[in-house]
Design a protein around this nucleic acid. Structure first.
Length: 476
RNA sequence: GGCCCCUUCGUCUAAUGGUUAGGACAUCAGAUUUUCAAUCUGGAAACAGGGGUUCAAUUCCCCUAGGGGCUGCCA
């Protein structure tokens, strides 16, 4: 293992960047960064019918959001088709590949029969050793790789260990379609080789492919890269990740208000660990990352834990950074939660003032945004049912009393508001909690609960008193 | 069906041929508090089952069960 480490992430642009892909990308990226190597991006767009520009954009956008920077320009696999065909021709002339004239129909019945008779449904090698002269005139053909029939193929995997395939179980796969275009297993080998990839980190759904690819490397006389197959991510219920749970594009996580830092930390801990460490910055993860500590068993995606982690990161962020994050997040809010018109500078100032108290209570940027809505609410506020219920006659009279007390507070720091409240409740013989609840309801009308004195402080004296008077009047 | 992979608290995981099997999230109970949140303290909670190997197995081996992947002229 001398020389520079080169890893790659090679998604096929047939959909968004899903969470499993994001995690293998993170691992590949971390491995390259740790070893001072390169992390390349290759778009596997050889399936022309299913590849879309939207998917490409979504993947690149997702990678950027997650902060997984790749080296150089992304490489598009289809653009290298000529090179792949050239290698296929080479295999053909070497005798390591042959033309197969079976029709799709024939192959299908072949598989069906095999299944019926309890044989493995693999290609039976009809054209493997047939003389090319027997070929039907002008008929279309696919090119198949001539895989060894005997012995075994070993994949020395960094995660799974030594995996052995009996060669009789691996059939002759198609490397060139009948339309002449190369297929995945050929393109991957050629590209990984040409790009100088030293370590292939990918999902373990590719484990069998690695066996077949190893055979192609061998036929070509090339050294295979080091393989590492990470287990897949399952949904919270242990079933395969479906759209219902987490098989969302990473942009969905952005829209849910998770931060890239938290995502990276969560993903890193899913299937990989460093002792008992749970919360650590990405730089630390890169420094610690190693293949040995990758787990072998599939793991479930746990939104609750991700949320908890996200809360940590939000609380730890500086007010400045958080304000920026909120501003950047606004366009990704769900349509119905987006502000009707752009926020004014004054609005942002209010937000900045309220942030220190709001961030203690928000686990996602969505929650943070929602809990800040009282800052921009128009008067009179509309009470939620819950809030109305809290404004009992007793609560109302206490509020009146407190408003009067507030009028006498000279400076409006959180500390003096606090002191005023203490004095008031002591004199009245009530609990502060009894006052705080209706107070919060009156000031915010919100179901999300900010710290009440911080809210007052953020609103300022005039507005607070105005709202309180308005609300108490309204409900008297 | 065939081949391959996996299996520690509910979840993510740590550790070990001899431990009270550790941590985190979630949960429960307290504390603190200025409501909510945060914080602190404490509790409950796991080695899938069966055989071996061994003085000793959660750890090594085998089998079974359960889960996953592959089995495409998709990637």
């Amino acid at each position: 293992m001398t020389g520079k480490v080169v890893t790659r992430f090679a998604p096929s642009p047939t959909g968004f960047l899903h969470i499993g892909g994001a995690r293998t990308a993170l691992f590949s990226w971390a491995y390259a960064r740790k070893h001072g190597g390169e992390f390349l991006l290759r778009i596997e767009d050889t399936d022309r019918a299913r590849s879309t520009q939207d998917a490409i954009d979504a993947i690149l956008d997702g990678m950027r959001w997650l902060g997984l920077d790749w080296d150089g320009e992304p490489l598009f696999q289809f653009a290298r088709a000529d090179r792949h065909i050239e290698i296929a021709q080479q295999l053909l002339s070497q005798g390591n590949a042959y033309r197969c004239y079976c029709t799709q129909q024939e192959l299908e019945t072949m598989r069906e029969n095999a299944r019926k008779e309890g044989r493995p449904p693999i290609y039976d090698g009809t054209w493997r050793d047939r003389d090319p002269s027997e070929a039907p005139e002008g008929a279309p053909f696919a090119v198949r790789f001539k895989a060894p029939k005997e012995g075994e193929t070993v994949v020395d995997d960094q995660v799974q260990g030594r995996v052995v395939f009996q060669n009789k179980d691996l059939d002759d796969l198609i490397i060139l379609r009948s339309d002449g275009t190369p297929t995945y297993n050929l393109s991957v080998v050629v590209d990984d080789h040409d790009m100088g990839i030293t370590h292939v980190i990918r999902g373990d759904d590719h484990l069998t492919n690695s066996g077949r690819q190893s055979q192609i490397y061998a036929a070509l006389g090339w050294d295979a890269p080091v393989f590492a197959h990470v287990p897949m991510i399952l949904g919270p219920d242990g079933a395969k990740l479906s759209k219902r749970h987490g098989a969302l594009g990473v942009e969905a996580y952005r829209e849910m208000g998770y931060t890239p830092e938290a995502m990276r930390n969560y993903l890193a801990r899913l299937g990989w660990s460093h002792g008992d460490d749970e919360i650590f910055p990405t730089e630390q993860m890169v420094e610690w990352f190693n293949m040995e500590a990758l787990g072998k068993s599939p793991s479930r995606f746990d939104f609750v834990k991700l949320e908890n982690l996200n809360g940590h990161y939000i609380r730890d962020m500086s007010d400045d950074a958080l304000l920026k994050a909120v501003r950047a997040f606004l366009p990704y809010l769900p349509e119905d939660k987006r502000p009707a018109k752009p926020l004014s500078d004054a609005d942002w100032n209010k937000m900045a003032l309220a942030l220190p108290s709001l961030k203690e209570r928000a686990k996602t940027l969505v929650q943070l945004w929602e809990s800040a809505q009282f800052l921009f609410a128009k008067l009179p506020l509309t009470f939620t049912d819950k809030a109305t219920k809290l404004l009992t006659p007793e609560a109302r009279s206490r509020l009146f009393g407190f408003i009067i007390a507030l009028g006498e507070v000279e400076d409006w720091s959180v500390a003096s508001l606090d002191a005023a409240a203490r004095a008031f409740v002591q004199a009245e013989g009530v609990k502060l909690g009894d006052l705080a609840q209706p107070l919060r309801a009156a000031l915010t009308g919100s179901t999300v609960s900010p710290g009440i004195f911080d809210v007052m402080f953020a609103l300022g004296r005039e507005e607070t008193l105005e709202r309180l008077l308005d609300q108490t009047k309204l409900s008297t």
